[in-house]
Design a protein around this nucleic acid. Structure first.
Lengths: 181, 181
DNA sequence: ACTCACATGTAAAGAGTTACATGATTTT
DNA sequence: AAAATCATGTAACTCTTTACATGTGAGT
């Protein structure tokens, strides 16, 4: 599943512009799938060229025309086909964990900085999840609840782990540093 | 931090070949940083060209010469510089979660297949973590323990969440399907 | 007989990120 | 006065993935 397919899926929620989709990539999708304008705009153009979405141009003054995209029947069919894969990937690419793997080559100060920055980002995500939960209503799709629930659970587990085991990294480094001096 | 830097870091553990590094990418690093031969071999060549690693060619019969790489002092310096970033990224790209977001467009059968495949992969990782824990000794670096601990904790949280909330996805779909028929 | 492990590498293709280019309106 | 929001898009660059290319030896 690429950016094109995710955009197509987002449009099942209603018509939207590339700018609108970007906001969704930053908020709700942010913790598991990111995309920038450089992927989104070409994706929408390509979907339109394939007849999977329709585009309505809405003139505006002072800004470029707003392009409102709507999924077509063909697009819906294509999306349902794309969703029919029994083993979708789930990939993590973490410079954070790679860095921590080599913690013995760092100073305690460096490690603490990395850890505290990570905790800050986790806290930002957790705040977002809590806000999303408050906005939830009876017609919030089960998929949305599930994915946000996964995100919240995983972030909390990570937060707990860093808070309870992070010190082991700096303790060890300090031992090594004092032994070396 | 790219594949080159991670390879450099792996070599602080002792000399290794590209083939050896690949095995480490598949096992211990597998859950947070992956790389194939197509990235590893060019990375090692490039590191050697920059004098960050030395290469010793060991003739073998029937197989290509084994190329044993060792990190140099320059390489160690470069690695320590690369590690000095206070905010390393931690990115997830999950087709799995994207698929589940759109669960209302899928059948209960499709959803159950996706969920059970995900649980199987999680179980494989958890088995690996347990085996690694048994192999741990007093001189296992703190970084290794920490990263594996993170992985195990997060995987368990995800497993628990899927097991306790997965049915909400299929329940909802069944309601929708029977309402539609 | 077949498959797995060992062992290296290249080349093309695919995908995404970053930087650039432009510019009005609203909020701080 | 500065920064953020709205709004679109391209082009170059970086990086990874996949497919190809080759071949032995050991285990099942």
């Amino acid at each position: 599943m690429d950016v094109k397919t995710v955009c197509l899926g987002m449009l099942t929620d209603g018509a939207a512009s590339g700018y609108d989709l970007k906001k969704q990539f930053e908020s709700t999708f942010g913790h598991f799938f990111s995309a920038g304008y450089g992927s989104i705009y070409p994706a929408l153009s390509s979907l339109a060229a394939d007849g999977l979405v329709d585009c309505e141009e809405i003139p505006q003054d002072g800004k470029p025309d707003r392009k409102l995209y709507r999924i077509t029947e063909a697009g819906r069919g294509q999306l349902i086909t794309a969703l029919d894969k029994p083993d979708p990937s789930h990939k993590v690419r973490s410079e954070f964990l790679a860095t921590m793997w080599f913690a013995h080559l760092m100073t305690g100060e460096q490690i603490r900085a990395v850890l505290s920055n990570r905790l800050e980002e986790i806290a930002r995500y957790l705040e977002m999840f809590e806000q999303l939960e408050q906005e939830e209503s009876a017609d919030t799709p089960a998929g949305t609840r599930f994915v946000c629930g996964c995100g919240k659970t995983v972030m909390q587990a990570l937060q707990d782990y860093i808070e309870s085991h992070g010190h082991e990294l700096t303790d060890d480094t300090n031992v090594r540093l004092s032994a070396a001096n």
